Structures are given as C-alpha cells and as structure tokens.
Amino acid sequence: MARTIIIYVDIDDDLGVIGIESPVVGDKRVYEAITKASESLASDSDFNSMVMAYNIFKKMKKEGEDVEIVFIAGSQRGGLEAQKKLSQELEEVIDRLRPEDAIVVYDSPEDEKAIPIIQSRLKIAGIERVIVEQHRGVEETYILFSKYLKKIINEPRYSRLFLGVPGAILFISSLLAITGLTSYVAPSILMIIGGAMIVRGFNFDEKLEKWWENSTIMVIAAIISIISLIISVVNGVFTAQEVKGAVYFQVSAVLLSMIPYIAFSLIVLFAGKVISRAIDRDIKLWHDVIKILTVILSYYVMADILRNLEEGIYFLQFQTLYSLSISFITLIASYIIMNFIEKYYGKKFSS
C-alpha cells in the first residue's frame, strides 16, 4: 500500500504500440518499461514524461515518503474509448494500492483529459506537465516530421482523417474525370470534406464502431443506410445533368430525386435501433418509433413543398399547412403520453 502514487498518463497508448502492457505498477516494472521505451521513443515527449515521473518517484522515495509509481494508458482510438480504458486501469491501480493522493505527470493537451477522471477518484497532490523544447535544425525537424507521419499512418484516429479523406477525394475525382464529369469534381470535394467534418464532429465514426462491436442489426442497418445515401447522391447528380430551366426548378427537382433515399436511410437506422431495443426489452424503443414517424412526416411535407416550387407555387397551401399542424400536434401529444408512461410505469415493467 502506498500513501501517494506517481501517475504517468499515456491516453493515446504509446506504451501499447511498443508492446508494453498497462497498467505498469511498481519500481521494477516501470524501469523495464522505460528501458524498452528508450529503444523506440527516445525522441518522443512521452519518453521524457516517463523519465520525469520516475525521477519524481526516486526523489520522494529517497526522502522517505510512502510512494509508488504507475503508468496508465488509454487507447489509440482516442475519444471516449481512450478515457474509458484509462478509467478502468485507474480503478485497477486504486484497488491494488489503496492510495490517498496522486501526483500526475503528462505531456500533451490530449493527456490533460485524464486529470478530471483521476480527480474524481483521488485527491491530486500535484501536477507536472513535461514540455520538450524542439530545436529548429533540419535533422530535428525531420525527426519530428517522421514521428507525426508515423502517427498519421499507424494510429486509426489520425489515419481516418489524414489518409481516408484525401484518399476518398482522389478516388471520386478520378472516377468523375474518367466518366467525363469533371465539372462535378469541385462540388464532390466539398461534399466529401463536409461529410468528413460532420462524421467527426458528431462522432459518427465512434458510434459506428460501437454498433459494429455490440449490435449486428445496427451494422446491417448502417450498411443499408450508407448505400441508400450513396444512391441519393448519384441520383441527384444525374438529375442535375438532365433537368433544364430556372434555378429554383432545378434545385427542387434534384432535391425531390434525393430525399426519398435520404428518408429511407434514416428510417432504416431508426428501425434497426427499434429492433435492437425490442430484443433487449428496452421500453425506450418508442423514442425511435417517434423519430421514424417524424422522418416520414418531414418527407411528405418537404416533397409537397418541392412539388409546389416546381409548379411555381411559392407558399404553403392550406391543405399542406393543415396536415402539417395536425401531424405535429399528434407527434407532440404522442411524445408526452409515452414519456409519461415511461416515467411512471417504466420501473414497474423493469422490476
């Protein structure tokens, strides 16, 4: 048991990359890990942080303090998965050592995300951030460039963005050039970049990975949904080529050709979630049923508006407005009623 633990934080799991299994607990194992890291991470700030943590440990030990050193790591995938794994390793260390407080050593803003996790379980007695000054010589710049290039190629969370997106742009641009549709190269590039920003911004890639690991049904639904979205884009491109006339007419025609597939894509995703919840006997499946109904309603309203635009009608007709109001009121009422049932009777069903 130790009163204080020195924690080196490696949230992107560089330890795992070089074959060191975490958590690393104790003077002997930490020394072995540093020795192994010196062979491949000697120029990396992570290595300097390991040495810094070890030096702090030796200094406090020499002063007679009750102290132990540990290395904990997250995941190369980053995000919530990295934080979750680091949290699990921290719990393992706490159960094993029963410390009263901790001194945290880290080197990057990404590692800094671990501090609130540690603080929620232990009193933090000190924080040491290691900042390694980079020289401006050609050789040092080359080493630094090589380090980040290796990260881009080997670590999934970087390779998706820096290799996957440019790769998709080159592939689509080449395909359009072969088919003689070079005028669509620029819009396609913007669409790919925008799609990548949406996917990363809303963490759709992490959600898809969780679906892949936890639910076969959601994987199938996601694949069908993606195929439907691709068809919608292709359909929109060919419609844009064929339709002539005023700008508003062209836009409405393109959108009309795309929204059935977009609506189908969303419905498939929500239906997959309904089936998954039904299998798990989750009463919250009604949330996704409401979403399906909302998508269907939105589709019919948008389709009606776009058809009106094609005919030169620029305002909502009374029938459309009436149907929209009734449907909206029905959905809201259904949501309130189902929310009431879940809140007051959900516990009875679960018990």
Rank of each mutant, 00 (worst) to 15 (best):
G64L: 08
Q83L: 13
H135Y: 10
I94G: 03
E133A: 11
F71R: 02
I143C: 00
I143T: 05
I124G: 11
D107Q: 06
S87D: 05
Q88N: 14
D95C: 04
E140W: 12
L144S: 03
E65Y: 11
R98P: 00
F71Y: 04
T141Q: 07
G78W: 01
S174P: 00
S173Q: 04
D66C: 06
V105S: 09
I103M: 08
K150W: 15
L163G: 05
G126W: 12
G137H: 03
V93L: 08
E139V: 10
D95Y: 06
S120M: 05
L163H: 07
P116K: 09
E112P: 07
R121Q: 09
E133V: 01
R98F: 13
D95A: 11
I103W: 03
S174G: 14
E112I: 02
V165K: 04
I153S: 07
A114T: 08
I72T: 07
V70Y: 12
V70R: 05
E68C: 05
I124P: 10
K150D: 15
V138I: 14
F71I: 09
I115H: 02
P166Q: 05
Q88E: 15
E68F: 02
G164D: 07
R121T: 03
F171G: 00
R129H: 05
D111V: 07
P99Y: 11
E100F: 12
L175H: 10
T141S: 13
V93D: 05
S120E: 14
R129P: 07
D66N: 12
S75Q: 02
E139T: 15
I169L: 10
L176D: 07
L122E: 14
V138P: 12
R96S: 11
I152W: 06
G167Q: 02
E65P: 01
V104C: 04
I117P: 03
I69N: 08
R157P: 00
K150G: 15
I118P: 05
A125K: 13
I94C: 02
E128Q: 15
I127S: 06
A168L: 14
K123N: 10
I115V: 15
E100Q: 11
Y158R: 06
I143Y: 09
S173K: 08
G78T: 03
I131G: 00
I115L: 15
R121N: 10
K113Y: 09
Q119I: 03
L175D: 01
I131S: 10
R98W: 10
L122W: 11
S120L: 08
E133F: 06
G126V: 04
Y148M: 06
L161T: 11
K150P: 09
E65T: 08
S146P: 00
L170D: 03
D111Q: 09
I118F: 09
E100N: 13
P109E: 01
L149F: 13
S75G: 05
F145S: 12
R136W: 04
Q83C: 06
Q134E: 13
E155G: 00
R136Y: 02
D101G: 08
K151Y: 08
V105F: 07
V105Q: 08
E139K: 14
G74P: 02
V67N: 04
K147Y: 02
E91F: 00
